[in-house]
């Protein structure tokens, strides 16, 4: 880890926190809020790379666990990990790492269609694969019900996948010389 890596880790953790300032929409039935923060997860992976993106998410979650109200809606504290949305949060470091790893296979900028597929695969697929069983467990509801309930968030997440892909491509064009190291 060079100094530059550490600074990027801190930056993407802060970016994810800043995205939480947008007020979330909470669906009353299952209590998982729709937030702009998962966009931060996708950008951390796609722009900072696997190792730095994953660590940025670990750092972000550490700040949340330390009691800073950084999650959308001003939530924070260790208790949040035990709630219904805990699994989604814990999936973020893995999702950012996998997105970064997939992007790095193409030197950081895969073709647009492929980057959409990568972001959807890890940013939605992996997040839900970890998050949904947790919802079922924490809210004590059947898996099928948790699955159906979570599907309500797919349209919002699909929009974020497109945004993340567009932003990543534009940032790489606008600032090509910044190091997209591994």
């Amino acid at each position: 880890m060079t100094t530059r890596d550490i600074v990027y880790v801190a930056l993407f953790a802060a970016l994810t926190a800043a995205l939480g300032l947008f007020p979330p929409l909470t669906l009353p039935v299952i209590g998982v809020p729709i937030t702009a923060q998962s966009l931060g997860v996708m950008l951390a992976g796609a722009l900072a790379g696997s190792k730095r993106g994953g660590l940025a998410m670990v750092l972000f979650l550490a700040l949340v666990a330390a009691g800073l109200p950084l999650l959308a809606g001003g939530r924070g504290g260790f208790g949040i990990f035990l709630g219904p949305s805990g699994g989604f949060l814990l999936s973020w470091p893995f999702a950012a790492f996998v997105i970064g790893w997939l992007f790095e296979r193409h030197g950081g900028s895969p073709p647009f269609g492929l980057s959409l597929a990568y972001l959807a695969l890890a940013g939605i697929g992996l997040v839900y694969a970890i998050g949904i069983p947790w919802v079922a467990f924490a809210a004590a509801i059947p898996f099928s019900k948790a699955f159906m309930g979570s599907m309500a968030f797919v349209p919002g997440d699909a929009v974020k996948v497109v945004l993340a892909a567009v932003i990543t491509r534009a940032v790489r064009k606008a600032y090509p010389d910044w190091s997209s190291g591994k």
């Binding site: 880890m1 550490i6 600074v7 880790v9 801190a10 930056l11 953790a13 802060a14 970016l15 926190a17 800043a18 300032l21 660590l55 750092l59 972000f60 550490a62 700040l63 950084l70």
Partner: peptide, 24 residues
């Protein structure tokens, strides 16, 4: 893990949050 690096990352992240708000 080097604790000095972790603590640098922590303090930088806390500093970056208001900076990002200003830039936005």
């Amino acid at each position: 893990v080097n604790p000095a690096k972790v603590s640098l990352a922590l303090s930088l992240a806390l500093r970056f949050i208001p900076v990002l708000a200003t830039i936005t």
